[in-house]
């Protein structure tokens, strides 16, 4: 399967959006190479604001821009922009329901080399608890383009997780990105694997392993984690009698928790697979640290069958 850089695609699309709409402005906190907001700095510098190493100020400045009619897109690493600026996102952005887009780059384990300080497994949990927030977690490069475009077109606060690495191209041009609804990536009736981000690709690979064992797994892509429409989630599960959620995030408060909550009134056996209430560490390859946390196709296939 071909691979593409999710962050490069995000940066390209962001620049295209800025070229179409002069009211879209881009802020970054001295990491625009990592976030790829640099593509706007180079391609349309008048729409780019360097905010220095000051994420809290960056978020409130974005709120001020939104109050004056602009559509700001504030970028940094997920671990910083979600964590350090949480209260600014709460007070300055979400409470007044301002039209600010926050982009958390290097999400999950994707900054594998830099270690625990740069790996964000908590961002979905803390963004999810904020009223008015919409959360995107695109599966690949193509879906990252759809995510930023959909977010800019949706009035109100949005948070987008972006992976640092080249990821398998799993979505098609016509794969829908509907807020609140998962999309069906592969059909099956024995177990439903609910995934988001890069875990969609791994879950599709796990489905092939399971097929070899005579198990038909359905794979659902949650490109948005909040809001979630419970009826749409239930419908997307089809006839599957059991569910596995897979996320490159803590199992506390992330996609697994969101699906559990969505199905709370109609429970099905559900296992959550993700990062187990711990921090990361440095690794020489993305795949090695993913494997350490059990985020492989083989392990996902095992989890799908586990009782």
């Amino acid at each position: 399967m071909s691979k593409s850089s999710q962050r490069n695609a995000y940066g390209e699309e962001l620049l295209a959006i800025c070229r179409e709409n002069n009211d879209v402005v881009v802020l970054d906190a001295d990491l625009c190479g990592g976030t790829q907001a640099i593509q706007v700095e180079k391609g349309k510098p008048e729409s780019f604001y360097e905010m220095g190493i000051g994420e809290q100020n960056m978020i409130s400045v974005a709120a001020g821009l939104a109050l004056a009619g602009k559509i700001p897109v504030a970028n940094s690493f997920a671990v910083f922009v979600g964590g350090r600026s949480f209260e600014q996102i709460r007070q300055s952005v979400c409470l007044p329901e301002l039209n600010v887009k926050v982009v958390g780059a290097s999400c999950g384990l994707s900054d594998f080399a830099d270690g625990a300080t740069h790996q964000a497994f908590e961002d979905v949990a803390i963004m999810r608890v904020l009223p008015h927030m919409t959360i995107f977690s695109p599966a690949d490069a193509r879906e990252a383009r759809k995510a930023i475009r959909t977010a800019v077109g949706r009035r109100g606060p949005c948070y987008i997780r972006i992976n640092r690495n080249e990821l398998p191209d799993v979505t098609a041009p016509d794969t829908p990105l509907e807020i609140g609804k998962p999309s069906l990536m592969a059909d099956g009736g024995d177990v439903a694997i609910c995934a988001s981000g890069h875990m969609v690709a791994l879950s599709l690979a796990a489905r092939d392993i399971l097929a070899g064992q005579g198990v038909r797994a359905r794979v659902l892509n949650f490109a948005t984690i909040k809001p979630l429409d419970p009826a749409a989630v239930r419908a997307a599960l089809g006839p599957c009698p059991r569910i596995l959620t897979v996320e490159e995030h803590s199992v506390i408060g992330g996609l697994g928790a969101a699906v559990l909550e969505a199905l709370a009134d109609h429970p099905l056996p559900l296992r959550r697979h993700g990062i187990r209430d711990t921090y990361g560490e440095s690794a020489e390859k993305y795949e090695r640290i993913l494997a350490k946390h059990g985020l492989t196709a083989e392990r996902i296939a095992e989890e799908a069958l586990a009782k």
Partner: peptide, 10 residues
């Protein structure tokens, strides 16, 4: 900071 954002917009 909110004021800075508004001034940039102006």
């Amino acid at each position: 900071s909110l004021g800075v954002g508004m001034c940039l917009a102006a």
